[in-house]
Write a protein that binds this DNA or RNA. Sequence first.
DNA 1: CCAATATGTTGACATTTGTAAACGATTCGT
DNA 2: ACGAATCGTTTACAAATGTCAACATATTGG
Lengths: 127, 127
Amino acid sequence: MNELKDLTAAEWKIMRIVWEERKAMTREVYTIAMERHGWSPATVKTLLRRIIDKGYLSATKIGNGFLYRPAKSSIAVVGGAVRSLLDNAVDGTGPVLAQLVETTPLSQKDLDILQNMIDQKRKEQKP
Amino acid sequence: MNELKDLTAAEWKIMRIVWEERKAMTREVYTIAMERHGWSPATVKTLLRRIIDKGYLSATKIGNGFLYRPAKSSIAVVGGAVRSLLDNAVDGTGPVLAQLVETTPLSQKDLDILQNMIDQKRKEQKP
DNA sequence: CCAATATGTTGACATTTGTAAACGATTCGT
DNA sequence: ACGAATCGTTTACAAATGTCAACATATTGG
């Protein structure tokens, strides 16, 4: 319902940290962001606030500050972003997905999952 | 070699038009952009110049103006953008790809292409 | 050849994004 | 209870992006 504004490049990096930690306080986030991107605590604080505003993180007050947790799974958000990019694929999503599968390292298990997904899709299409 | 700067949202829309037309002059592009997004010719001109600067379009002078053509295929550019997004998928690319296949409408042909890609991947993995 | 038309270029301006310091409120250690 | 450490909030500012008008120039129809 709520129109989610897209994440910016810097915001993605912060989201990734929170997704990895599953939940984290400001301190945790900016410690990691410091090592990983050399960002100052102030920068991280600003980004966290903006992400909250966009609705990708939820925060609950704990003691001094907040505990942040993802408002949506990374699969959902990344998947959504990718899907919106795929709309730019003039030659169709098929070829792009193929190129992706081709150039991405996938485990045997990943391949099985994809295989199943495709088989199922096929059935649904022939009722 | 040349570090391509990312396209912005508005630039993607212009690129899509040129990819569709395969080649086009300014007039063509902004006529379509006008219908599709309500953009003024001036806006389109600016965007075209910026995209040229970023290296996603090449232009050859023809008569009064320029003939633009994509410097790279949409599959390559879109694929690249998607791959870079997938790096944000904490849970692994496998699940995201699965979710994508699941939620994207795919033609029978698309499914075949994917099927092939997967079969091939499997072979490569069992030497 | 000249007026009408179409193009590229330049300049502009509001908004968003990247990056961060400073300040005031809050909490914690002792 | 009080000073030290921490947090969130406010403010700032340069760069990038979204949008576009004006102008000088090139092209073309008559």
